[in-house]
């Protein structure tokens, strides 16, 4: 774990990977870390709006990567597997379309961090050998509810937007609703299973 100062009121903590970042962020939230924002990402946690840098540093000293967060709630997301990139992904995974559906819906995913858009969660769980490249040139418009993969990440587009991930299918689930509490369906720490519709 390495700490980097960011301006006057933020600290960026480097950890091994997204799972460790989620574990640290969850742990620090549970101990009321003196920060306005605790933002886990791919291999870091940003503590922003920190008014007591020494207090935060002392708190972080008590964390070890072995402190795993308790398992989050499990959310089932119904998917209609009819995405335009199914055949590409099947080819990359050395299987057919049914094989992709079977593999994807049998995977236990964890939402490790959000980014890109409100409620867009990076879902970990696919094995390394299932990594697929992004589109060389992103689509101008990916519909809301698109279930997609890129690298070993899976994600669901909360709103229509440009996007370069490989589209597997569609869900009717509302990923983001600013009038709901919590507004994100798949907040960091949430466990996710995809269920064929």
């Amino acid at each position: 774990m390495q700490l980097r100062r960011v301006g006057r009121a933020a600290v960026l903590v480097e950890v091994d990977d997204a799972a460790a970042a989620l574990a640290l962020a969850t742990w620090a939230r549970g101990r009321a870390a003196p920060a306005a924002e605790v933002v886990p990402a791919a291999a870091t946690v940003l503590f922003d709006g920190v008014h007591d840098v020494e207090g935060l540093t002392a708190l972080l000293g008590a964390w070890t990567p072995a402190d795993l967060p308790p398992a989050g709630d499990t959310v089932e997301v119904e998917v209609r597997y009819d995405g335009p990139d199914l055949a590409f992904v099947a080819d990359a995974w050395g299987t057919d379309v049914d094989g992709v559906v079977e593999r994807h819906s049998a995977t236990d995913f964890v939402a490790e961090f959000c980014g890109f858009a409100p409620g867009f969660s990076y879902l970990a769980g696919l094995e390394d050998e299932l990594a697929v490249p992004r589109l060389a040139s992103p689509r101008a418009r990916v519909p809301a509810g698109s279930v997609a993969v890129a690298g070993t990440w899976c994600g669901v587009y909360p709103t229509a937007s440009p996007g370069g991930w490989r589209l597997l299918g569609q869900t009717a689930a509302r990923l983001w609703d600013q009038d709901r509490d919590p507004p994100a369906l798949l907040a960091p720490g949430t466990r996710v299973r995809f269920v064929p519709a």
């Binding site: 301006g7 960026l12 924002e37 933002v39 870091t44 959000c114």
Partner: peptide, 28 residues
Amino acid sequence: SSEGMMLGAVQVPPDGRPVVFLADHPCT
């Protein structure tokens, strides 16, 4: 790797021209 962004960050995209992040900056 994608990481948390902050207000006032001077972020440098591949073309090397700096961008100062203001209030509506992306979170990561």
